[in-house]
């Protein structure tokens, strides 16, 4: 039996199912909490921190925190919005995100958050760390310069025996995403596409496709990310 509990977001009262993840509860109510690593139905990673909200005065990740009775959630406050913008800016300086040359441009969630928060220039200095591009597998290009370490591919893309195609390598500033060379050889078309679609940025790309949709008709050319959720509230 699911238990219905009361809670508030930015002072407004709501009811929702106890135990549901905050980002999902909020989306149902037409409130957009941005996510980069979250994917509905997949074990939360809590790695991008963009969904940070304040719950009863404490910062929590909206994608890993289950709803409890009487939670007072803050989402749309100057403090939180500035933190989210800072995280977006940080991801832009940490990796090498050359939007003009990226196949995912216009459909990229990270870029879309940059648009939503009107990032004119990151407040942090650019790192410009050299990262590799792995194009050795038959179907995919792994453009590591663009990886934001959301772990969606790590969590979602497995073969029939449950073996991982993707995993992290190294730690800290040396962290990188890697694709299993042996498994990649026999990767199915379906998995290759699933991996590309799951990637919120332009790190995982199916070879020989891209730039199919013209500028002006892409996902985030005219409407901000989160609009689909927010229109429920209108």
């Amino acid at each position: 039996m699911s238990e219905i509990v009361k809670f508030t977001i930015d002072g407004k009262e709501y009811e929702g199912v106890k135990g549901q993840l905050l980002v999902e509860v909020a989306a149902e109510k037409g409130i957009y909490i941005p996510v980069l690593c979250h994917w509905k139905g997949v074990k939360p990673a809590g790695s991008c921190r963009i969904c940070s909200v304040k719950v009863n005065g404490r910062f929590m990740a909206g994608c890993t925190t289950p709803l409890e009775a009487d939670m007072k959630i803050e989402n749309d406050t100057p403090e939180i919005l500035d933190i989210r913008k800072a995280i977006v800016e940080m991801l832009f300086v940490e990796g090498n995100h050359f939007c003009p040359s990226c196949e995912k441009s216009g459909n990229c969630d990270l870029q879309a958050l940059g648009y939503r928060y009107q990032m004119m220039v990151p407040r942090f200095p650019y790192e410009f760390e050299r990262r590799d591009i792995d194009a050795s597998s038959p179907k995919l290009i792994i453009e590591k310069n663009r990886c934001i370490f959301c772990k969606r591919c790590v969590r979602m893309i497995k073969d029939e025996q449950g073996k991982s195609y993707f995993a992290f390598k190294g730690r800290g500033k040396h962290l990188q995403i890697s694709l299993d060379k042996k498994l990649a050889v026999t990767m199915s078309e379906e998995n290759a596409h699933k991996a590309m679609d799951a990637c919120p940025v332009g790190c995982i790309l199916r070879k020989e496709v891209g730039f199919a949709v013209p500028i002006g008709k892409r996902k985030y050319d005219h409407v901000s990310i989160g609009t689909d959720i927010e229109k429920l509230n209108k």
Binding site: F98, Y126, R130
Partner: peptide
């Protein structure tokens, strides 16, 4: 005023950065 991606973040020429 920094106008455009190259002025703001180096842009495509900066793809050589790190090399």
């Amino acid at each position: 005023i920094s106008l455009g991606e190259c002025a703001i973040m180096g842009g495509l020429p900066a793809m050589r950065n790190g090399i």
